[in-house]
């Protein structure tokens, strides 16, 4: 499709980014989650997955879902620079989503982590995959991170023992509103990678083919009685 000059002038400059190689993780209940990079044509199923959670106040799902919805739309419409979206799916059904972006070749900014299937540390695995992409694959030296929920704070700031960079405000300002900023450095990642990040590559083609047909969740533990209309 031809892109007119006005549209071109609205789009941010993009860094070339290596793709995230898909991997497979066996979760505690024996189910296999495939983690892979989202494709642009999957935006509908991703937004449809996020949308019902915008109304869930518990555990700050509302703010995370609302912001992630905008981030995914921004990624699709070329309104955010250097963004990537990773999807965790089980039998093709979306179990979790992460969003993130690069500031430049050295710095990354973690945006959001959304867990749909709970109790299996899906979010923890996807967050680790996001850090793996930033540092191991895209070559960033640092990723700046904030938490908008107590769960996020426990999972990232405490469990990763992230560096507290809050004192550098306003020189260092995370894009999510100046909330206390913490940072994962390459050195920190190298120390904890083995304990936090897992997965097997390559994903067998049959399993990857199943994960290529993404489906919206049929139920949400966060929304009892949910039925997709």
């Amino acid at each position: 499709m031809a892109i007119d000059k006005m549209e071109q002038s609205l789009r941010p400059p993009e860094l070339e980014m290596k793709p995230y190689p898909a991997k497979i993780i066996t979760l505690a209940n024996g189910e296999e989650m495939i983690v892979r990079q989202a494709k642009r044509e999957e935006v509908g199923v991703i937004l449809g997955t996020i949308q019902p959670l915008i109304g869930v106040q518990k555990d700050f799902y509302d703010i995370v879902a609302a912001r992630m919805y905008a981030e995914v739309l921004g990624w699709y419409e070329y309104r955010v620079a250097n963004e990537f979206v990773l999807i965790g799916s089980i039998d093709g059904e979306i179990a979790g989503i992460v969003t993130s972006r690069l500031v430049d070749g050295k710095e990354g900014v973690s945006l959001h982590t959304m867990t749909i299937k709970r109790g299996l540390r899906v979010g923890a695995q996807l967050f680790a995959a996001k850090m793996e992409h930033h540092i191991d694959i895209l070559g960033n030296d640092e990723v700046h991170i904030v938490a908008e929920s107590p769960i996020g704070f426990k999972r990232w700031m405490i469990e990763y023992a992230l560096e507290d960079r809050s004192a550098q405000f306003p020189a260092l300002r995370h894009e999510l509103g100046g909330v206390p900023t913490f940072t994962l450095t390459r050195k920190l990642w190298e120390n904890i990678r083995a304990d936090k990040c897992t997965g097997t590559r390559p994903v067998p083609p049959v399993k990857l083919a199943k994960a290529d047909k993404l489906k919206m969740p049929t139920e949400y533990p966060q929304i009892p009685g949910f039925k997709r209309g």
Partner: peptide
């Protein structure tokens, strides 16, 4: 925690050291 777990996933599997 109403989620079952399998011995393969939490012990035998190569990912188990991170999952568990």
């Amino acid at each position: 925690v109403r989620v079952p777990c399998t011995i393969d996933a939490i012990h035998d599997n190569e990912n188990a050291h991170v999952i568990n």
